[in-house]
Design a binder for these strands. Structure first.
Lengths: 216, 216
DNA sequence: TGTAATGTTTACCAATCGGTCAAATTATCT
DNA sequence: AGATAATTTGACCGATTGGTAAACATTACA
């Protein structure tokens, strides 16, 4: 007899561990491309290499699968911003934040697209997280940036839009990968474009945020 | 008896004009949120305020509707880049490009999201356009930027990544609108954030691209 | 090894999907 | 007005959707 679902979470079997991992991996593949509505359990089942009812044995609904996936992916996704340090000097902090975010775009493009899809749809499943934990984290980092501005280490600017612009420019290489490849052409479709992007973005942000040099 | 489809395009009635407009407007609403796979004809029919068979009278398939919508939206979407002028001086050209793109993000967010959705899914319906017309247009503008670099008007940098960064930062305010609002809070949810964004981005790009000032 | 708990699958369900058809309605033109 | 063409809709189709039930297979543990 199948155990009640509640009990399952009390002690996890090795098989549970493995299969849930396997399912979420497949779910990431599918959800990141087609979004929640556009994805089907059958698709995910096929990618995961198991039957649909078997997926539903581990996750009762498509929603539950999606939620588990997002929960799992969210923490790591915010890691680079969390690492943003008030003690370091602005130039190296911004440089390394850009590097980290670009590495994430290169190494975890599906995770980036998963969130992008969620945003496009109005963030129905993560809106609370955006307004709560994310906003708090960003507020905190914005305060750090403001101290840099006040001490004259970087130019006077809006810290929120600064953060947005780093997010957007870096995630672009994951979310709009097809477009980037199409425009750069086949010959620049190796990972080299990430190095080029890093060079450009560091130059842009470091140059654009450098203080002194009077009027705009 | 219904006319053959081919004849319909020969001479368009007033009703055809109006209804096709009405349908594409509804289709934009739906496709821009849920993407192609995630959208249903019934949804679009409901938004358009007519019956499903009636939609299919004007567009034979969901695909045809989507294609018509993209064709219609594409031309205007690329207008700002086309306006990018070699004759103007770099600073004002870049400034006005940023302004235009931000205005598009503000006034046509659904169009932006429509493309974003398409990109996330691997651009199945516009890949040829990306590799063809878009690439050619970008190549052309990249050449313009290169002349600016060679004549020392802006700093030495990769023109393609410069264009990508303007695209991403500006479109971010349409595609990730929910996130931007959530992080900025209710009080900054008026159109004021577009002005703030414009100010920040102009400062960033103008400052980041300014020549002289030796090593990075 | 036996057995109870866990894991997997086949067969199936009602709802929704994209799309068709024929009948009914409305607009157009003489 | 009457005839003809254009438009709209309700009923329907087979395929696919998210999800269930129950039989079957496997694992873990005494």
């Amino acid at each position: 007899m199948a155990i009640p679902r509640a009990a399952k979470t009390l002690r996890r079997t090795r098989i549970q561990e493995e299969k849930e991992e396997q399912i979420l991996e497949a779910a990431l593949d599918v959800f990141s491309v087609s979004g929640f509505r556009g994805s089907t359990i059958d698709q995910i089942a096929e990618v995961a290499g198991m039957s649909k009812p078997n997926l539903l044995y581990y996750f009762r609904t498509k929603e539950a699968m999606h939620r588990a996936l997002i929960d799992r992916v969210l923490y790591n996704w915010l890691e680079p911003l969390r690492a943003f340090d008030a003690e370091g000097n602005p130039e190296s902090e911004i440089r390394s934040y850009i590097r980290r975010k670009l590495e994430m775009a290169r190494d975890f493009p599906r995770e980036s697209r998963l969130f992008a899809n969620e945003m496009l749809q109005g963030a129905p499943h993560v809106l609370d997280m955006l307004k709560g934990p994310l906003k708090e984290l960003v507020d905190e980092k914005a305060a750090v940036i403001r101290t840099w501005i006040k001490s004259g280490k970087i130019v006077h600017c809006d810290p929120y839009h600064l953060i947005f612009s780093i997010w957007s420019t870096t995630q672009h290489y994951a979310d709009f990968d097809v477009q980037v490849r199409a425009v750069l052409g086949e010959e620049h479709s190796g990972d080299g474009r990430f190095e080029d992007a890093a060079r450009f973005l560091e130059q842009l942000f470091i140059g654009g945020l450098r203080p002194d040099r009077s009027g705009s």
